[in-house]
């Protein structure tokens, strides 16, 4: 991310990217704290360090475009516009949450915001995205679907079947692989001989591209190009976004499988700090602007947590509803 690139864009647009990335970070940090405190039920898979992939891709989408997500969905949801309040209510198991307390962390979603409930079986959401793309093509709407998945999912059969069908039918699907180098604790080098996951695109006859997934503008630009190709009927596209999870796979994971130097290197390059450092090279942005955004976001999250904690729980009668339409 160069100082030239940063000058191409409007200040408001750039600060918006910063704000959404920081919202994800702050949301995740506060949720982690609530878990460690023992006040939040369930389990969590968090995305600290991966904020640029979610924000970069979702910024390239329209409101009526869709995403599918994974067991690690909080960042994708916030980036697509699902409200922090409805998510926190859901995480606390409240009946007014985005899934009425029936989904929880791993199934966060809101179709009104263009996000299918997250699919927590690794790779399981990929064929769904192909089907959504098929629906858009059959209905002749200009919509696009971006499907997020990790490096681990590219070993699943569902990845192969889903991406192949999108390829043979030219569907408007952006396959977004967030390569954070670990499937749970297993390093990507142990599960594929490829140096580069984007090379898998050649196997399906589609375009693939590897992008610095911690550079929000690089992600945004790559996603914008891919989305446009899809809208023009030239999809699908496979984007590999290299990033790093600077938190555990799930709660109470001390990440002892990540070498210390590797972790430190990625922490020093985490996307929010990196973006902030480039942002302030602009004449019209200073650290005070960023500080103001951060404190406003902190307030947003604090009040969302308050709403989440006080939301009414479902009644036992709710157990039996919403099984069938």
């Amino acid at each position: 991310m160069g100082t030239d690139t940063i000058k191409k864009y409007e200040k408001e647009f750039l600060l918006g990217l910063y704000e959404r990335m920081f919202l994800i970070r702050e949301f995740e940090e506060q949720v982690k704290f609530l878990f460690l405190e023992g006040v939040m039920p369930g389990t969590i898979h968090q995305c600290q360090g991966q904020e640029a992939t979610a924000v970069g891709v979702c910024t390239a989408l329209n409101n009526d475009d869709f995403i599918t997500s994974t067991h690690r969905p909080h960042g994708h949801a916030l980036a697509k516009g699902v409200s922090p309040e409805s998510m926190l209510i859901e995480l606390f198991g409240g009946v007014t949450g985005c899934c009425k307390g029936k989904g929880g962390s791993m199934h966060i979603g809101d179709v009104d915001k263009g996000m299918l409930p997250a699919i927590a079986i690794v790779g399981g959401g990929i064929p769904l995205a192909t089907g959504m793309g098929l629906a858009f093509k059959m209905k002749k709407t200009p919509q696009v679907v971006a499907t997020f998945f990790g490096d681990g999912a590219t070993s699943e059969g569902a990845f192969h079947e889903g991406i192949n069908m999108a390829a043979i039918w030219d569907l408007p699907v952006v396959f977004v692989c967030e390569n954070n180098f670990y499937g749970a604790s297993t390093h990507v080098n142990k599960v594929t001989r490829l140096k580069c996951i984007a090379d898998r695109a050649a196997g399906y006859g589609i375009r693939g591209e590897t992008v610095d997934g911690n550079d929000v503008l690089a992600v945004y630009e790559a996603a914008q190009t891919a989305v446009q190709e899809c809208r023009d009927g030239k999809g699908p596209v496979l984007l590999e976004l290299e990033t790093y999870r600077i938190t555990g796979h799930s709660r109470r994971d001390a990440c002892q499988y990540q070498p210390k130097e590797e972790r430190e290197r990625w922490k020093n390059n985490e996307p929010i700090g990196a973006f902030g450092r480039v942002l302030v090279t602009r004449d019209d942005v200073d650290e005070g602007d960023l500080e103001a955004i951060r404190s406003q976001v902190e307030q947003t999250v604090v009040s969302a947590i308050k709403v989440g904690r006080s939301a009414p729980e479902p009644t036992v009668a709710d157990l039996l509803t919403d099984v069938y339409a």
Binding site: F66, V111, L116, G124, I126, P127, L128, A129, T130, G131, M132, G133, L134, A135, F136, M138, K139, G157, A158, H160, E161, G162, N164, M165, I168
Partner: peptide, 21 residues
């Protein structure tokens, strides 16, 4: 007509159904 890919085309069907097909 699909490839021989049952997991794939059942998933495709779910995704298309969710979008109104």
């Amino acid at each position: 007509d699909t490839p021989i890919a049952e997991a794939g085309f059942f998933g495709v069907s779910v995704g298309a159904a969710v979008m109104g097909m």
